[in-house]
């Protein structure tokens, strides 16, 4: 199956980001294709390299970046990002900023779009 994942909440504050990550890992292990991951609302905070969590905690932004390094298309909504001060300069590698058209294409092209949020 071709999957797309939409994340609507910021990191640490809400479990959505962790649920989405664990779901994607399980999908990859089963050999499913991830068509894309899209961050919207406060979800755009998931991929800022300015975050510096305690050493013994998971580093949420780096985790997403590692998925991006595997070739998964990770997109941050430009409108939601600008509103919240997230710009290209603060993003972790392997993640890009683009428009809601990307989410539209994911919703159309993926067999399943799964949303994680509050």
């Amino acid at each position: 199956m071709k999957l797309a994942v939409l994340v609507l909440e910021g990191p640490y504050n809400h479990e959505a980001s962790d649920s989405a990550y664990n779901f994607i890992q399980a999908a990859l292990e089963k050999g499913h294709e991830i068509r894309g991951i899209f961050f919207y609302h406060d979800g755009v905070y998931n991929v800022t390299k300015l975050m510096e969590p305690p050493q013994d905690d998971r580093h949420i932004a780096n985790r997403w970046s590692e998925l991006g390094a595997k070739g998964i298309d990770i997109v941050v909504c430009i409108a939601a990002a600008k509103r919240r001060g997230i710009v290209d300069d603060v993003l972790v590698p392997n993640v890009r900023i683009s428009g809601l058209g990307q989410l539209t294409m994911m919703a159309i092209e993926a067999d399943r779009l799964v949303t994680f949020g509050d």
Binding site: A79, T104, M105
Partner: peptide, 19 residues
């Protein structure tokens, strides 16, 4: 909260596509 407002922005964009 902003959910309904930003949700409307998604609808307006998607409506421009073949869906």
């Amino acid at each position: 909260s902003i959910y309904v407002y930003e949700g409307l922005e998604v609808k307006l964009i998607m409506a421009a596509y073949d869906a």
